[in-house]
Design a protein around this nucleic acid. Sequence first.
DNA 1: TCCGTGAGTTGGAAAATCAAACCCTCCCCT
DNA 2: AGGGGAGGGTTTGATTTTCCAACTCACGGA
Lengths: 156, 156
Amino acid sequence: MAAPKDPRPCSIADALAIVGEKYSLLVLREVCLGNGRFDQLVRNIGAPRDVLATRLRRLVDAGVLTKRAYSERPQRFEYRPTQAGLELEPVLMTLKEWGDRHLRNGTDLPMVVEHICGNELIPVVTCRSCGAPVRHEDLTAHPQAEGWTVSGPTAA
Amino acid sequence: MAAPKDPRPCSIADALAIVGEKYSLLVLREVCLGNGRFDQLVRNIGAPRDVLATRLRRLVDAGVLTKRAYSERPQRFEYRPTQAGLELEPVLMTLKEWGDRHLRNGTDLPMVVEHICGNELIPVVTCRSCGAPVRHEDLTAHPQAEGWTVSGPTAA
DNA sequence: TCCGTGAGTTGGAAAATCAAACCCTCCCCT
DNA sequence: AGGGGAGGGTTTGATTTTCCAACTCACGGA
């Protein structure tokens, strides 16, 4: 039986255990932008240097980033996203879109991302099977482990 | 000019200021699942009660959740997502998909979400204009404020 | 009256964050 | 040969957060 204090098993929680600490996703943002050097990260993110050092170690350990020298003598390093890291970029873009819309009314955006198709990227999360945009009302959750439930369908 | 210690203006950072604290996105997960009562949240998330209370206040203030009584006498409350909250669900689903794939090899998933189309939901982030899946190589960032740069195109 | 449930609040110890200063290695300039 | 950066961190000490357990308060039921 579920002992007191064991949370729902969940990939969202697992993912957040990797990239959910303060600044981690901002590190990923900068690294995806190509700004992977320590001092760039400090400046662009505004994080304390020691915290940043900790986050970078963790993200490298987790396989989201790699650390590579872009110069021996003097040794200088740069962090880059791994494949797994790059595949988090859609999460960032989706979060950006939410922020653009809900926190800035979609105007005065501090950053615009252009898609290769020539238009501004406005990400839409869709169902791979049917291609429709994902809406809450269209989803049904099925926990696979026993003891974990979801409360009935979304009432009004 | 950019004073020392002002970070890049960015909707991702702004969004994370709302939902980026520890447990906040897990609260949203549970609330989207319909488990919006305080004790359910404590149990399913595994967060300390006081921290949870703080998070809930913040999320309500930010307009992501609402608190409503589902019973007067005895007073009992339930948290529900607002429209803005519901629109964060795609972020959660995208994060879940990343976790499923990178942290569990896509097997033994603790939770499966079914789309109304009848298939398992596997979210894909696409470009609204052209419909293509978002890939890092297809993106170009354009900061709109002066002083902020991105370092050249993604090298190999 | 006593017990249990829901929804928190309180108190104190443990851990994480922050800012500033420091360190080390190298390069360049004179 | 000396001085001054730059880059990439680490150290130190004060401030905040977290964490956990215990406590509260308002009911409702046996």
